[in-house]
Simulated scan of single mutants.
Amino acid sequence: MQRMGMMIGVQPEMLAKYRELHAAVWPEILDLISRCNIRNYTIFLREPENLLFGTWEYHGTDFAADMARMAADEKNQEWWAFTIPCQKPLETRAEGEWWAMMEEVFHHD
């Protein structure tokens, strides 16, 4: 199991829409997340900066393949058509990232 974290901004004018979408995530998306070996997925919001922090546990053996499967999923592409316009990527993210991945530096069970 690998714990992962990521950050992204949210467009201030889209904050209400982002909250609305995540208050009722489509069942197909929740199932896809599980099938892609992601567990304990949480997104936190920090206002007034409008930053999102996502964290989850990855329980698979091939993260790249699972993420490719998620990206290729037709229903997920439809979901992203609603959520991506709400997001504002960090300027400091690595090339190829949308959400900026974070390094775990401490954990306590």
Rank of each mutant, 00 (worst) to 15 (best):
Y41R: 08
Q2D: 12
D62S: 13
D66N: 07
A24N: 11
R3T: 03
A65H: 06
W26E: 10
I43P: 01
A65K: 09
E57F: 00
M67P: 04
Y41N: 09
A100W: 01
R39N: 01
D31P: 00
T55A: 02
C86T: 05
E95T: 09
A71D: 11
N40Q: 04
W56D: 00
N37E: 08
E104Y: 03
T42M: 07
E74F: 03
W80E: 12
P89S: 10
V105H: 14
M6Q: 13
F82N: 11
T42G: 07
G96R: 14
T61E: 12
G9K: 13
E95K: 15
D73Y: 07
Q87W: 06
N76C: 06
K75C: 01
K75T: 09
Q77G: 15
A81V: 07
T61Y: 14
E49L: 04
A23T: 10
E91G: 03
A16E: 15
S34V: 06
L21G: 02
S34R: 13
A64H: 02
M7C: 12
Y41P: 02
L15M: 08
M14T: 09
D66E: 02
T61I: 06
R69F: 04
N40P: 00
E95Y: 01
P27G: 01
D73R: 03
A65N: 05
I29T: 05
D66Y: 02
N37Q: 14
E28M: 10
H108P: 00
H59S: 05
T83K: 07
L52A: 05
G60C: 15
F106M: 12
L30R: 11
T61D: 15
A65C: 02
I33T: 11
L51R: 11
F44I: 15
W80Q: 08
T61C: 01
N37G: 00
W80R: 12
A68S: 14
R35C: 00
M7D: 01
V10P: 10
D31R: 14
W26N: 10
Y41H: 13
P48E: 12
G9S: 05
N50A: 07
D31Y: 03
C36H: 00
E104V: 12
I29H: 05
A72H: 05
I84E: 14
G9E: 10
P48H: 05
M7V: 12
N76S: 00
P48A: 14
S34C: 10
M7L: 15
D73T: 07
P85T: 03
R46D: 09
G5Y: 06
P48I: 15
D73M: 08
Q87F: 03
Q11I: 13
P89N: 11
V25Q: 14
E20L: 15
A72D: 07
Y41A: 11
I84V: 11
G9R: 08
K17I: 04
E28D: 14
K17T: 14
W79R: 05
P27L: 09
E13N: 11
T61V: 15
S34L: 15
K88G: 04
N37T: 08
E47W: 06
R69C: 08
A23Y: 15
G9M: 12
P12R: 06
A100M: 14
G60D: 14
A71G: 09
T92N: 06
W98Q: 05
A24G: 00
L51V: 08
L21M: 13
F82I: 02
E103I: 04
I84A: 13
D109L: 11
E74G: 03
F82Q: 15
E103D: 13
E91D: 08
V10F: 09
D62A: 11
M101K: 03
A24Y: 01
A72Y: 07
E103Y: 00
